[in-house]
């Protein structure tokens, strides 16, 4: 577990309803509606807590016919707290974690359901947003300007600004009206929220 994951995990546990959900899942695997009925809270609230627990690694889910069944992640709870405290984190790893957390925060603030809400004014934030959009482009493939515009328009209506900024930031290259994703962005995973 990284330091950030450890913090996330303990923060997640520090909630009465989430503890109650985990206690129920200790007895048996359950689906949202069953937990809601058992704990006297709404299904939406249970779903919210389960999502948090899943993100923290405390529960896992699987499809079971019509339902999504949730299970407690027993191996994780089997880890001794003293062992977590004894884990060493190097400065470079800590730095990477901080950068990752910052990146996730920027993406969460500027994107909603896969659409860019606004173009950040701060260059550092804009670069993160542009790199996120660049994940929609395949490395090594050539794109016409029209294709580039169509792809960017899925994220934001001001595709001209974004296209130009991607070039000036070196995220995309343009040569004789043909666009390519710059090499260092190759192999990125699927963009968040898509």
């Amino acid at each position: 577990m990284t330091e950030q994951e450890t913090i996330g995990f303990f923060k997640c546990l520090a909630d009465k309803s989430r503890l109650a959900i985990l206690k129920s899942l200790m007895e048996e695997d359950m689906y949202v509606e069953r937990l809601a009925e058992r704990l006297g809270i709404t299904s939406a609230t249970v779903s919210f807590h389960l999502k948090k627990l899943e993100e923290a690694g405390a529960v896992t889910s699987r499809k079971d016919q019509y339902y999504t069944m949730y299970s407690i992640n027993k191996p994780l709870f089997g880890v001794r707290i003293i062992d977590i405290l004894g884990e060493k984190t190097s400065e470079s790893e800590a730095q990477k974690e901080r950068e990752k957390a910052y990146r996730e925060k920027v993406i969460a603030s500027f994107f909603e359901y896969g659409r860019l809400k606004s173009i950040p004014t701060q260059r550092k934030k804009e670069r993160i947003v542009l790199e996120e959009i660049a994940k929609a482009f395949q490395a090594g493939r050539e794109y016409t300007e029209r294709e580039v515009n169509i792809i960017i328009a899925d994220y934001h209506d001001d595709f001209c600004t974004i296209r130009r900024d991607m070039i000036s930031e070196g995220i995309m290259t343009r040569e004789r009206s043909i666009y390519r994703k710059a090499e260092r962005n190759g192999g990125d995973p699927e963009p968040a929220g898509r």
Partner: peptide
């Protein structure tokens, strides 16, 4: 609901 945004579902409900 469509995008599985559990927190927003809880708040809007």
């Amino acid at each position: 609901e469509k995008h599985g945004d559990a927190e927003k579902v809880m708040i809007e409900e």
